[in-house]
Design a protein around this nucleic acid. Structure first.
Ligand SMILES: Nc1ncnc2c1ncn2[C@@H]1O[C@H](COP(=O)(O)OP(=O)(O)O)[C@@H](O)[C@H]1O
Length: 375
DNA sequence: AGTCCACAGGAACTGGTGGTGA
DNA sequence: TCACCACCAGTTCCTGTGGACT
């Protein structure tokens, strides 16, 4: 009998199928999101009979299932009617009018160059592709706050709204954000013609988290390969992190891998606790692929200071960097890191005088150091 | 009250990149 | 091939402002 190196001699392993714990996995059922699913589906349903859909604004804290719910509904609609085409865009990656239009064209199979073309030309290309392909598009702009910071965001939404008016192609727009007043930054006219229906995603309670995890774990692990308290502990940890289901699911996956590596027969709370140490806080997890070298340098400096004033921080940065950016750009970097909830910034109080700002890390230092490893 | 310091942030511009069309 | 144009991150130049010090 041949033994592959992927099988240890006796153990059959812990995972029945670990894919059920992958972040991109979309479950068959989403417990406790039935009403949101119904509301989203109901809003978009008119597309099925060439009608005008209700645009949506979805907000709630991290890990409350906004993304997975949106994808779930898109999948259902696409399966039901092949005309419907869900286009999912993460605005961390595509955060300007041009970049989003580019991605929209790509999604319809019309690759256009990343640079060199005017936005209007890409827009025309997109409209053309829509007509030719005869699809009913639903555009999902996830992490929409990253887009709406940009001055071109209003123009982009105006473009999308105009498609309906000028070409009578109906198009659904779904904006997702964890900030309640994301839309406030939009142009008044665009906001009112968008007239998005707001759907709120609340934090999961510990009890709800437990049930969600049970469901996912049942498919992912062999039934007798997981100690009873593991799920409860994972749920409790997620509850601590403001009800973030992603933390819990990621921890289970990491714990299972640790257990298999150790050759354990059962996944225990010890494995899970080890996994917790490896899980990044959500703000860092989301932002880390999108930080540039300057922002990383700022974080490096911040690891050495409990708190520091803005002017001092810039001086410290200049003394370390050969090619330092200007002080003006530096301020924008600080503001971005603050918006990402990685830095916290306080201005004018009793102790902080003048117009300077006091800057601190908003995330655990250890997690930042971990993130900066490898460069 | 007036002035200055030190910084915030708006607006206009620039330079690198990479298209188009003659 | 070579003007010419668009995008966009970053720069330059600027005005605004809270508090300290006259
Ligand atoms: N009701 C649910 N049932 C099953 N899994 C869920 C549920 N809600 C969230 N999840 C899972 O939690 C993780 C985080 O969800 P996500 O949609 O990314 O949250 P958000 O977009 O709100 O930050 C994903 O892996 C998702 O599959």
């Amino acid at each position: 009998m041949h033994h592959s190196i992927f099988e240890s001699a006796e153990a059959r392993g812990i995972f029945k199928d670990e894919r059920f714990l992958y972040p991109e996995y979309i479950p068959e059922k989403l417990p406790f999101r039935e009403s949101q699913i119904a509301e989203i589906a109901g809003s978009l349903k008119p597309l099925l009979r060439n009608g005008k859909p209700q645009n949506l604004f979805i907000f709630g804290p991290s890990g409350t299932g906004k993304t997975v719910t949106a994808r779930y509904v898109l999948r259902e609609l696409e399966e039901y009617a092949s005309k419907v085409k869900g286009i999912y865009i993460n605005c961390f990656e595509f955060h300007t009018r041009n970049a989003v239009l580019n991605k929209l064209c790509l999604a319809l199979g019309n690759a256009v160059p990343r640079r060199g073309l005017a936005s209007d030309e890409i827009y025309n290309e997109f409209v053309h592709a829509l007509k030719v392909k005869n699809v009913a598009p639903i555009v999902v702009l996830d992490e929409a706050d990253q887009l709406i910071r940009d001055k071109t965001a209003s123009q982009l939404l105006y473009d999308l709204l105009r498609i309906t008016e000028l070409h009578s192609i109906h198009l659904g727009i779904m904006l997702i954000s964890n900030i309640r007043d994301t839309l406030a930054m939009l142009d008044d006219r665009v906001r009112s013609s968008l007239s998005a229906l707001t759907i709120e995603f609340n934090q999961y309670t510990p009890e709800q988290l437990k049930q969600i995890l049970h469901e996912r774990a049942r498919n992912a692990f062999f039934e007798d390969a997981i100690e009873k308290d593991v799920i409860n502990l994972a749920a409790a940890q997620a509850a601590k992190c403001s009800g973030d289901a992603r933390i819990a699911i990621e921890s289970l996956l990491a714990a299972g891998r640790i257990a298999e590596k150790e050759g354990a027969k059962k996944l225990s709370v010890v494995h899970l606790k080890k996994a917790f140490e490896r899980i990044k806080p959500r703000a860092l997890e989301k932002a880390s692929p999108h930080l540039d070298s300057c922002e990383k340098e700022i974080l490096k400096i911040m690891c050495e200071h409990e708190k520091i004033f803005s002017g001092e921080l810039y001086k410290a940065y200049c003394s370390r960097c050969k090619q330092a950016i200007s002080e003006r750009s530096f301020r924008d970097k600080i503001n971005r890191l603050a918006e990402l909830n990685i830095l916290s910034v306080r201005g004018a109080t009793a102790e902080i005088r003048g117009r300077t700002r006091e800057i601190m890390l908003a995330q655990p230092k250890e997690a930042i150091i971990e993130l900066l490893k490898g460069d």
